[in-house]
Design a protein around this nucleic acid. Structure first.
Lengths: 153, 153
DNA sequence: AGAACATAGTTGATGCTTCAACTATTTCCG
DNA sequence: CGGAAATAGTTGAAGCATCAACTATGTTCT
């Protein structure tokens, strides 16, 4: 067991800023979405991904992947969304194990309303206060992180 | 109700990279900490903040603030940590409403062990793959976000 | 064909988070 | 002083996430 390679002062400062900032940012956005539209972040993310899919529908596994959720979590959340009438699930004709989740018209409208508020919050607490070149740096960094995580799983 | 100011393609790309990346990064780190040391991220964060405080103790409210947790959540999590013997709570002599949470020796050791693994994970998925100047950009950006959020509450 | 294995998705139990309500103490201010 | 309001912290209920177990179907290989 070798000595750990501790972070230097600058690394620690930046890492901490990220951890604290992202925790609080997430909290604000979740609360906002819930208060104004009754949607959890997980639900919102599912609606977004479905809205962008061809014919506004996706297989459960693909939806789980896109929304960065476990299949179990997706099943539960989808059940809730379905009971709200925002999503509907149908059997897949080709693969009898499969299920398509698709956005209902009502779901699309709910998403549209939520997204209009959401983008303002994203601007207020993220986009509009970060220098464009820093935003690019964030994009680069987290794309790398995603790649790194992908290569592990 | 005016038209929303939608994000342009680059902003959307960077924002999405951040959202997806941070969700998956958090997930990996939480899982790692839980598997190797039986600690949730919330528990770990509390131990860290206590370990850095003078005399390794803090008032509950201050600890909640430092660890970015609600007081309610802190109460629950502290109760769990206390039952594991990692933290102890005592009444505050000055303020009879107040409570000090302090790290036990056992808690300090548990944190030390966890931190040694944690720093490696942070390096593997964050520090070591991000260009230093991009890391600085992240530090700058999230410090601004924290300031922005702080000025709201 | 058919046995072994892999994949798709769901379910229920357990545990953590959130929210609102609550007690107790302290501060503020007429 | 003394009542109103603010602050500290806890609690229990309800909601959401995680985990392991499970059913059902599809794929592979001999």
């Amino acid at each position: 067991m070798s000595e750990p390679r501790w972070l230097d002062a600058a690394q620690q400062r930046d890492w901490r800023a990220y951890v604290d900032g992202s925790v609080r940012l997430t909290e604000i956005m979740d609360r906002d979405l819930k208060a104004k539209h009754g949607l959890s972040a997980a639900e919102y993310e599912i609606l977004v991904r479905l809205s962008e899919a061809p014919e506004r529908r996706l297989r459960m596994a693909e939806l789980a992947e896109n929304a960065s959720q476990s299949r179990s979590r997706l099943s539960h959340t989808c059940a809730r969304l379905e009971s709200k009438g925002l999503v509907k699930r149908d059997n897949c004709p080709n693969d009898k194990r499969g299920v398509y989740a698709h956005l209902t018209d009502e779901g699309f409208d709910a998403l549209d309303r939520a997204a209009r508020d959401h983008v303002e919050t994203v601007r207020t607490f993220f986009i509009d206060i970060i220098a464009p070149e820093d935003l690019e740096a964030i994009g680069r960094a987290f794309t790398l992180i995603l790649k790194r995580i992908g290569s592990v799983n």
